[in-house]
Design a protein around this nucleic acid. Structure first.
Lengths: 230, 230
DNA sequence: ACAAAAGTGTTGGAGATACACCCATGA
DNA sequence: TCATGGGTGTATCTCCAACACTTTTGT
């Protein structure tokens, strides 16, 4: 039995109005079109699981410094037995018939802060809108779905992990992010009232610069403080 | 690398006012006192994870029909390397030095509905008050803690899995359960108001019998309906 | 008739929702 | 001075917390 990790990296930016997911494209084999997949790979013998997720993400997509959060284990004995996945497994795995149990991790990043670069067995990295995800390798569609559900639930309870968020942000950016995650519009005044009630939120002595409108106050979350030069 | 499941079975009854956890006692070795542990064992080659948790629980404690919910994976490479666990491992495991990643499952049962009987490598089964848990084998103290946190969080949001609850109950019993889980008293009228707002709750055409006070209405949750003869 | 637990309503405060106008900046 | 997004307050409603009396049954 093998253990792997799979990373669901959700990306957002100020322009798009839905979340994207970072996918890698598998190697093209014979005449079948290549499948996309989540960045994921085996856990090493002496490696902690969280470290493993970080390493794997780094090796395949060159993203580092991303906070990853474990959310579910996927262990259906048939999860890699589908026809569509057989060729790739035969070519790429030492023991292609071995059962693989995978641990799902997710994260949330501002896309422009992280430039993904394919490496290792990833031929290509791409951000795909969560509403336009094609059939992925293995049970990865299911994994994405579950990750999204977890992210939305946590966000609704303002339980969003601050580690997942940018270090400095304006409230408009934060609201935009909530709207993207929850996929609905929020009232600006009400959003501000509720978010300001969180004691983790602190306002920095700093404003936006070089914008040609009234510059916005910048905020951060307490946990991030030591990483910011105030 | 080996994969196991560990089951945190929380038990309650109407009399006690805190949760109990079902533990098994490991075999006594030489002159060291036996450690208690969560019921847990390896996942079989072709076994689904949820099935595995059920089977392991059954084999060690003879409990069946318990709904188990996955809550976290514990994969610290050193989680079974502590001194206190070495002797038991050497005696009981084919590959005592293999790394073991374990998947935590939890459940919640009315204690009198389930009579645990030790079997396999469990010498004894016992319900221990969650406030009086001794040092357990491996990282099992940590696993219990995390399970409890999950249970409380879900309960607070009324997200408690109905599968975890008895099929028929009075509101007083349900309130008692909430109080045990959350470890605080709740107001009767307020509890009723909030719980009745849940649309999953339905009142049965049935009342308590043979009680020498006003008999209480019985309730159930929708999911359980097909298992009840109305 | 008594003991025991079931059942029920109101009030005050806090958080959620809905909604419109002025402000600071760069061009 | 204009265009752009930043920033703010009030009224209503719904949800949470606190609190005491009546009802139904078995003995």
């Amino acid at each position: 039995m093998d253990i792997s990790v799979d990373c669901v990296i959700f990306g957002f930016n100020e322009n798009s109005n839905s979340l994207q997911v970072l996918l890698i494209e598998q190697e093209k084999l014979e005449n079948i079109p290549p499948l996309s997949a989540l960045p994921g790979d085996f856990v090493l013998e002496d490696e902690d699981l969280d470290d493993s997720a970080k390493r794997v993400l780094m090796e395949l997509t060159n993203l580092s410094g991303v906070f990853l959060k474990q959310f579910h284990v996927f262990g259906d004995p048939n999860r890699i037995k589908e026809e569509k996945d057989q060729k790739w497994l035969l070519k790429n795995r030492k023991n292609p018939h071995n059962r693989v149990i995978t641990i799902g991790y997710y994260s949330l990043v501002r896309m422009e802060d992280y430039r993904a670069q394919p490496a290792s067995f990833a031929q290509k990295t791409e951000w795909i809108d969560i509403n336009e995800i094609p059939t992925l390798a293995f049970d990865h569609n299911r994994i994405v779905k579950k990750a999204l559900k977890t992210l939305r639930r946590d966000t609704l309870h303002n339980n969003i992990s601050f580690e997942l968020l940018p270090k400095k942000f304006t409230l408009a950016q934060l609201q935009n992010l909530y709207e993207i995650i929850l996929n609905k519009e929020l009232d600006r005044r009400n959003f501000r009232k509720s978010i300001k009630r969180l004691e983790e939120l602190i306002s920095l002595n700093e404003k936006q610069k070089n914008v040609f409108h009234k510059p916005a106050q910048l905020y951060s979350f307490k946990q991030n403080l030591d990483e910011i030069d105030i």
